[in-house]
Nucleic acid binder design. Sequence first.
DNA 1: TGTACATCAGTGAACGCGCGTTCACTGATGTAC
DNA 2: TGTACATCAGTGAACGCGCGTTCACTGATGTAC
Lengths: 252, 252
Amino acid sequence: MTTQNAPRTARERARAELTREIAEEARRQLAESGANGLSLRAVAKALGMVSSAVYRYYPSRDDLLTALIIDAYDAVGEAAERAIADGMPDETRGRDRWLAACHAIRGWALAHPHEYALIYGSPVPGYRAPEATIGPAARVPLAFAGVLAAATEAGELGDEAGAHAGPDGAADALAPALAEQAAVLSAAIASPVPPEMVVRAVIAWTQLFGMISWELFGQFVGSFEPADAFFAHAADQLATFVGFEHSARAAA
Amino acid sequence: MTTQNAPRTARERARAELTREIAEEARRQLAESGANGLSLRAVAKALGMVSSAVYRYYPSRDDLLTALIIDAYDAVGEAAERAIADGMPDETRGRDRWLAACHAIRGWALAHPHEYALIYGSPVPGYRAPEATIGPAARVPLAFAGVLAAATEAGELGDEAGAHAGPDGAADALAPALAEQAAVLSAAIASPVPPEMVVRAVIAWTQLFGMISWELFGQFVGSFEPADAFFAHAADQLATFVGFEHSARAAA
DNA sequence: TGTACATCAGTGAACGCGCGTTCACTGATGTAC
DNA sequence: TGTACATCAGTGAACGCGCGTTCACTGATGTAC
């Protein structure tokens, strides 16, 4: 959104740069006043421009917001992807990649609380996210899906590890409606992961973001604040819940 | 906040009633425009008053917001409390009470999405919650804590059920910092629940709210929407994770 | 290389809007003797 | 019960503010011959 390849003329270069600078200043103000405090006029003023000049770069306030949302999704998505891939030896187990992604996402969220709130907090009233946000928003779930798929194929997902046996012995049988949703989702991303594990992963995913939101939005104040220890413990517990074997392998 | 006992004179009765009506109208507008769209002037206009008249009832916009926040916490807290207690035979197991509370909270959230966002979504920028909100905010966690305590005393919490054994056999040993936080919390509410279970319950609690936020804020669109089946399944899985035994008891 | 024209970035004023909050006021309701 | 005074609810105008967006404009940058 804010990048453009091959700016030829000086004009084009200046345009690309200012487009980026406006987004940066907007992000700065977002961090101070939140999404609803974001104002085109204030951004223009901070950049020494007149407010109407911004309209040469973003046709409306909502378009600027969209650019920020896409950038935020891309940033957290990249953080997760890098945590999974960067500096990890090839033989790294899925569990460790999964945990690294969890911690990277939390790290990003703590460093950029307002951007986190922008994409994962309550929706901005009156703003309707355009389709262009769908792709970037999918990066984090796809990153997790990739780890899960690789671990499945490597046989690292013990079916028993996270299973919670009921009285009938069926570990976590899915209701038909749920099984179908999981199957459709699996098929859409051509994933080899069985539906039960997809569901467990989504449970872990919601727990992760619930926990981060709790920390950022102040619900832990007075109890589990600072939340580092709690976070690490919970992430670990949920990795087991999903089915990831421990790195130092336990005999079944 | 909006109630007052024993209004004697007609004036007092009128005042109590208008105080309530203002909050109700504010809640109505909150449901339409979100917390940031809440305006004293609009509320006054809808009630046929002049905007300055509202100041006889709420000294500022923030005080009105505070009243709404407290009412919302009380409403969801009451929903949880009723789900746990009402219509439940005395011999009802903790698991069923826990699950009933989870479903009641989700039901309330779906029925009052903006009030949910007000208390559990991204904080309203510039608003600082006063201490008066702490008590009402604690009702939901205390309700859960009560179920947990009763189940512990009734011996319904199987230590093995939700435990995830690592290679060393230690199920979910807590890091010292975390163990202390859990112990302090347990002591503060005079709970007989061991720290490991407190932590597991908080994990379940964050998952619950993460899942509800995901549903309300649209992150499930295109995958697990409608989320009824997913919610029921996840709540059940986490009840087991916390350690609640199944109602139809399984032999260990 | 030089000129004529088209493109486009940025200006400044304006439109119309809504906001929270203050303040002097009027008239109705309540209270004390 | 009747009068004098105090209390308080609601009015209407105003203050000062910031917002998104439009529009005719000027001057600089780019392009075609």
